[in-house]
Design a protein around this nucleic acid. Structure first.
Lengths: 106, 106
DNA sequence: AGAAGATGCAGATAAATACCTGCATATCAA
DNA sequence: TTGATATGCAGGTATTTATCTGCATCTTCT
């Protein structure tokens, strides 16, 4: 997984909306997705290309249409790599802060 | 939580490295963090400000030093809002794709 | 074949982003 | 107090990014 591509893909609200739309109904065409977007079709295409490069979306050509499918695997890997790691110390943080402040002031 | 700020904060590799560094040792000063970064101190400051604006990092002034602490709460909320949602349909995706292709071709 | 529909490709541009340098301020320690 | 240390602030710049417009290509349907 290219974590940088995944994070950068998720950084844009339009692309997160595209993922939301595909989550509601998987396998939508470019045209269908554009109906919910309020921007030029060509712009949406670029966003979808970024999502594909991050492996968050796969597409299949069917005739003159292009169908898009969400792929949750990279998101799961982001979770494993990032969220769980930081959650492990969740409970110790207030302790760290308190100790730090107490230990150095009279 | 401002999801957009959180995602944009995580989109930069330097900022993710800062979170990693704070995960290894919480409560580091700006100077300590800079030793691991290979960029001007002022640049690191800007990254830390973005992390603070996203509430991923908190800081406390102690004399002439500034201590930084990681805050995992926004990451957890990102997980709840994003990762779990998409994971729920994880198993159905290959099915969706297969059905889509089969149903429309002779 | 020809028209309509869906998507692809390329170049232009305005805004956002990540850096930097230079100088200012505040704190500690001798 | 004075020098050294840690951080803050402001401005400048080069790169990246998001978006658009215009035109091309490829299917489908009549």
């Amino acid at each position: 997984m290219d974590a940088d591509k995944v994070f950068k893909a998720l950084a844009d609200p339009t692309r997160r909306k595209l993922l939301d739309l595909l989550c509601e109904r998987n396998g939508q065409t470019l045209g269908q997705l554009c109906e919910n977007l309020d921007m030029a079709r060509q712009s949406a295409t670029q966003h979808l290309q970024i999502l594909e490069a991050a492996n968050l979306v796969s597409s299949v050509r069917r005739g003159r249409e292009k169908l898009h499918f969400i792929n949750p695997v990279p998101l799961h890997e982001v979770y494993e790599r990032w969220v769980r790691k930081f959650e492990r110390q969740r409970l110790s943080l207030l302790h760290d802060l308190k100790k730090e402040l107490e230990g150095k002031q009279p």
